[in-house]
Simulated assay, not measured.
Amino acid sequence: MTVICMVLIGPSAPGADLMARPLPPDAVKDVVPNRVMTWNICNPCKESNAGRAAEIAKYAPQVIGLQEACVRDVERIREYLRNLHGLVYHVEYGMVLRNRGRCGGAPWSPGSFGQAILSAAPMTDRVNVEYPDGGSEDRGYMAVTTTVGDRPVRVFNTHLAQRRQETVRAGQTRVLAEEVARHGRAIVLGDFNAVPDSAELAGIWSLAVDTDPQCHPASTGSCKPTTDWQSKFDYVFLRGIVPLRHGMHPSPYSDHHLLHADLPA
């Protein structure tokens, strides 16, 4: 019976073992102020949450938006970040479905799947919106107010409909853009499943700029790919904030690269 329960529920969280260990001498121990990041962590990819945490710790963002996230995986990532790397994050979730194939769990209680935001500073005013039409799978956006550097900002995190569903994504970005437009300062993170010159992104481009000043929807723009199949699908859009620096980092733990933006203080 114990074996059956372990198969159904999955392995236990790592916290008990990690809490007893001292931090490694090379632990990061602090976030980089004014740095935000987006990362689709790939699901179901069965990757190591310790490895995912180590990737995040390399760049130690103040805020990170995760897509294709399961609550159970995010909790383990947070524990590894805290106990192995000295990085302490608050978390808020924007779950859009419960799916055992995606997130495990018992048949009668499957795990939750969607978005998450980790922030070194506390977060308030969380909203979680499921798009009226998710396409082939439920999709949505979440938003929180938190501090980046020393200033409050509204942070959005989204994952749009899968490829070849342009009409669906157009409806989703209309919903998202309407809310983003209400804020003079906003950061929009996510996997948009659309290249920069896609018609469905026009409403977002009218409100915000990409963290890479060379990347814009015109054909003359120079946008570096953010996926293993050499497409730019991942964005850090900035509204009312001037981009300063950015970095993009391929990872063995996902088919999407980590994308971070360093913002002015």
Rank of each mutant, 00 (worst) to 15 (best):
M1F: 15
M6I: 14
G10W: 01
P14F: 04
P14Y: 05
G15L: 11
A16Y: 09
P22L: 08
D26C: 04
V32Y: 03
V32D: 12
P33F: 04
N34Q: 14
V36W: 00
V36E: 03
C45L: 07
C45W: 04
E47Q: 13
P61M: 10
V63M: 01
G65V: 10
G65C: 08
Q67M: 12
E68N: 04
R72Q: 15
D73M: 12
D73L: 05
I77C: 03
L81R: 04
G86H: 04
Y89G: 06
V96D: 01
L97Q: 15
R98C: 10
N99S: 13
N99G: 10
R100S: 09
G101R: 09
G104L: 08
G105I: 04
G111D: 00
S112C: 13
A120Y: 08
P122C: 05
T124M: 11
V127F: 05
V129L: 09
E130G: 14
Y131C: 01
G134A: 02
G134K: 00
S136P: 06
Y141F: 12
M142H: 02
V155R: 01
H159C: 08
A161V: 01
Q165E: 06
Q165T: 02
E166P: 05
T167F: 02
V168H: 00
A170I: 06
T173P: 01
T173F: 02
A181N: 09
G190M: 06
G190C: 11
F192S: 01
N193W: 00
N193Q: 08
P196H: 06
A199C: 07
E200M: 07
E200R: 01
L201E: 07
W205E: 06
W205C: 02
P217G: 00
A218G: 14
T220M: 08
P225C: 08
T227H: 07
Q230N: 14
K232W: 02
F233G: 00
Y235C: 05
I241W: 04
R245V: 12
G247V: 13
P250S: 04
Y253M: 09
D255S: 14
H257A: 12
L258I: 12
H260M: 11
P264W: 05
A265W: 07
A265G: 15
A265T: 11
